[in-house]
Simulated assay, not measured.
Amino acid sequence: MHHHGYLWTGSKQRFDDEALRRPPHPDPPPADKPELVQRYKEVKAEFPTVDLPPLETAHWLIKPAKLIRGTWEEPKEAAEWLGRQLTEYAPRFSSESERDSTRLALLVSSAAERLGWGGDVSHGFYLERPTFLSVALVTCSPNRAAPDLVCPIL
């Protein structure tokens, strides 16, 4: 078992495009609804490659390996990476309470614990409006939430 780190920053408007943040339904829409068919084709082609954070954390494993920011065998090392990201971005968090160093240390500690039993970790923060930060740690080989997903780095 190992852990991959993912980080995304971008406009909140782009982040809110939920159709591109979830895998397409296995069944396409009826052919008599051309605009739905077209959107389905777009989502089917774009979801696996678009850098937007998926709605389900485990679905990062469907994305290209080039989006991985780091890989760690030990949960503590992965959580330390999370801590470095939070420390780097904390001055830009829109909420003062989210910048609290004790709160951030608790997020890192709970991440190490969750990764230790094979869970995933995902956090999102508003930065300067309208920017959003998404940071995630995904357990791989296998993933508890989606054991059928293949690790992007084999």
Score class of each variant (00 low, 15 high):
residue 110 S to N: 09
residue 148 D to H: 14
residue 50 V to F: 12
residue 91 P to S: 09
residue 106 L to G: 08
residue 110 S to C: 02
residue 15 F to N: 08
residue 121 V to M: 13
residue 140 C to T: 06
residue 74 E to K: 15
residue 24 P to F: 04
residue 129 R to F: 15
residue 146 A to T: 02
residue 142 P to K: 15
residue 141 S to K: 14
residue 42 E to T: 07
residue 32 D to N: 13
residue 60 W to Q: 12
residue 88 E to A: 15
residue 123 H to P: 05
residue 83 G to A: 06
residue 33 K to G: 00
residue 103 R to Y: 11
residue 131 T to P: 02
residue 96 E to M: 07
residue 86 L to A: 06
residue 91 P to A: 13
residue 101 S to L: 11
residue 99 R to Q: 12
residue 108 V to Q: 06
residue 20 L to Y: 10
residue 27 D to P: 00
residue 83 G to T: 03
residue 86 L to W: 00
residue 58 A to N: 05
residue 137 L to R: 01
residue 53 P to I: 05
residue 58 A to L: 08
residue 151 C to I: 02
residue 76 K to H: 15
residue 18 E to M: 05
residue 61 L to F: 05
residue 52 L to N: 12
residue 72 W to K: 10
residue 24 P to E: 15
residue 80 E to M: 03
residue 14 R to F: 10
residue 106 L to T: 05
residue 22 R to N: 13
residue 111 A to D: 13
residue 13 Q to P: 01
residue 120 D to M: 06
residue 127 L to F: 14
residue 145 A to P: 01
residue 42 E to Y: 10
residue 120 D to R: 07
residue 66 K to P: 00
residue 55 L to H: 05
residue 63 K to Q: 09
residue 100 D to S: 11
residue 26 P to S: 10
residue 30 P to E: 14
residue 103 R to L: 13
residue 88 E to T: 08
residue 68 I to S: 03
residue 54 P to V: 03
residue 48 P to A: 06
residue 14 R to I: 04
residue 14 R to Q: 13
residue 128 E to I: 03
residue 96 E to F: 11
residue 82 L to S: 03
residue 148 D to N: 07
residue 135 V to P: 01
residue 41 K to H: 06
residue 85 Q to A: 08
residue 66 K to A: 13
residue 151 C to R: 08
residue 59 H to W: 14
residue 103 R to T: 07
residue 79 A to S: 11
residue 113 E to R: 14
residue 75 P to T: 08
residue 63 K to H: 07
residue 96 E to T: 03
residue 131 T to Y: 10
residue 32 D to W: 14
residue 78 A to F: 06
residue 136 A to L: 02
residue 74 E to N: 14
residue 150 V to F: 03
residue 61 L to D: 04
residue 60 W to F: 09
residue 22 R to A: 12
residue 110 S to Q: 10
residue 90 A to S: 15
residue 74 E to W: 10
residue 113 E to D: 03
residue 104 L to S: 03
residue 111 A to K: 15
residue 46 E to M: 13
residue 51 D to G: 04
residue 136 A to I: 01
residue 18 E to G: 01
residue 102 T to Q: 15
residue 151 C to A: 11
residue 61 L to A: 02
residue 54 P to I: 03
residue 95 S to V: 00
residue 22 R to I: 02
residue 95 S to I: 00
residue 34 P to A: 06
residue 152 P to S: 14
